[in-house]
Amino acid sequence: MWRRSSVRCQRNKWGVTVEILTLDCRWRHDGEGRERLVMHLAYLDAGSGSLIVQAVVGGVAGAAVAAKLYWRRLVDRFRRQPTDRG
């Protein structure tokens, strides 16, 4: 059985934005009552996760790049919130 989920943001009663789902992909029952994430990437699609993991594979310098990427994502998220409220 298939159903789609998508990125959705919602503000709770305290006014804090909550990311309901961060995945845009399909879920499928695995036959044991659990749902399993299934991704279908196109032939020439590098895959976002596959791009990031290469930084980590590149050693210490690469791990630093990956850490910087995640740090910027975190900072960006907090920076966006005042705009969301306003």
Binding site: C25, L37, S50, L51, R72
Partner: peptide
């Protein structure tokens, strides 16, 4: 690799490329 694919499934490859470039 598998975990990264799942966590970033919603992010477009173009955005991630730009983020990696900006991160050095």
């Amino acid at each position: 690799h598998g975990a990264m694919q799942q966590r970033n499934a919603g992010a477009s490859s173009a955005d991630v490329r730009a983020q990696l470039r900006a991160a050095g």
